[in-house]
């Protein structure tokens, strides 16, 4: 992708109004997300459950996009890091009776630590090697979880206490929405900081970043660790929301699912994956429920969407929104500029 720098250098007024538009856009989206489970078709338990999965997937995709979209390392072991967090939190609660709230944080720490080790090991390698090594680490971790039935109960599944004292989905939804916003805010803040600048420099041009004095491995490891820590935190939520853990949670297919959402949403934006996850998960959930006779249909659609995005629209959903917004609010600019983000 060509690095699209604001080539027209919009005036300060314009930049300010653009920032205001972005804030309004975000506020509207958050308001919709908060109000949605109260509005009729969505106020039933089934729909709320779908919304919880949507918010959880949104948060996964944000954490995933933080590495994939900014430093161009695709963490193919992502699901394994979610799994580490989930199992850490779950086992702490089951074996030591530690509160799930503390467990979730411990899960994030352990996951982050394993991410740190993995990162130090793999991130000196070139892009594809790093991705594949993360995948191997994920496979190995899944094997370990499956092969230690004395500790993890293996594929029988580990029953885990729930986070809240209720089976109502609504409080869980607001909780996971909070976690999603926390993830978004923290990761966006990092991206806007000096560290984030280094991430983007590395992601766009490794050689140039090196030449300007950035130690790539260090920043790659920081990014990877942070992403894995959030994956662990989300894993903790997963564990204490569903109440059952199986090694299948760590499977590669889950990573691919998160990856699909992240890329369909738009790589390197964080908000794109967060927004697209909701409709995607709700629609696929409904498809799954309606078309039980056609197993796998929703995943076929997922895969097709991912393929379409990869081949024809690399900027994904976020790119569509951006170009539409540009078309609406900057009608007088020439055609070349509106086409720039999708070029």
């Amino acid at each position: 992708m060509a690095t699209v720098i604001e080539e027209t250098t919009p005036s300060r007024v314009e930049a300010k109004s653009a920032a205001r538009r972005r804030m309004t856009f975000a506020a509207v989206l958050i308001a919709i997300a908060v109000a949605l489970p109260l509005i009729p078709p969505f106020n039933g338990q089934d729909y709320q459950r779908l919304l919880v999965t949507g918010a959880l997937m949104a948060a996964y995709a944000v954490a995933f996009d933080f590495t994939a979209g900014y430093i161009d390392i695709v963490n193919f072991g992502f699901a394994a890091f979610v799994g580490i967090g989930a199992y850490t939190s779950g086992l702490l609660a089951v074996d030591l009776g530690i509160s799930p709230w503390i467990g979730m944080v411990c899960g994030a720490l352990v996951s982050g630590f394993v991410g740190l080790l993995t990162g130090m090991l793999t991130l000196r390698l070139r892009g594809i090697y790093a991705a594949v090594m993360a995948w191997f680490v994920g496979l190995a971790l899944m094997g370990v979880v499956r092969n230690l039935p004395d500790i993890t109960r293996g594929s029988l599944g580990l029953s885990v206490p729930l986070l809240l004292n209720t089976s109502d989905n609504l409080p869980y939804y607001y909780l996971v929405l909070g976690i999603l916003l926390l993830t978004l805010v923290v990761l966006m803040a990092v991206i806007r900081s000096r560290i984030g600048l280094a991430f983007r420099a590395i992601g766009q041009n490794l050689a140039a970043a090196k030449a300007s004095g950035i130690n790539p491995t260090r920043f790659l490891v920081i990014n990877f660790t942070l992403s894995c820590a959030f994956a662990g935190l989300l894993g903790g939520f997963y564990a204490h929301y569903y109440g059952i853990l199986t090694p299948d949670l760590l499977a590669t297919s889950h990573t691919v699912e998160v990856l699909a959402v992240a890329y369909i949403g738009g790589r390197g934006t964080l908000w794109g994956p967060a927004v697209i996850a909701f409709p995607l998960m709700v629609v696929t959930g409904l498809l799954q429920a309606q078309l039980a006779s056609l197993p796998g249909l929703e995943l076929v659609l997922y895969g097709l969407l991912l393929i379409l995005v990869m081949v024809f629209r690399p900027t994904g959903f976020a790119g569509l929104v951006t170009s539409a917004a540009n078309r609406i609010w900057r009608p007088r600019t020439d055609a070349a500029e509106t086409a720039a983000p999708t070029a």
Binding site: M1, V74, G296, G303
Partner: peptide
């Protein structure tokens, strides 16, 4: 641009479609 990584992800999509197409 970034051909290796893009095709890797593209084939991940192909894999999902083929597996679930078979299932379907």
């Amino acid at each position: 641009d970034q051909w290796v990584m893009n095709t890797f992800l593209l084939t991940a999509g192909v894999s999902v479609v083929l597996i679930n197409g078979d299932r379907l």
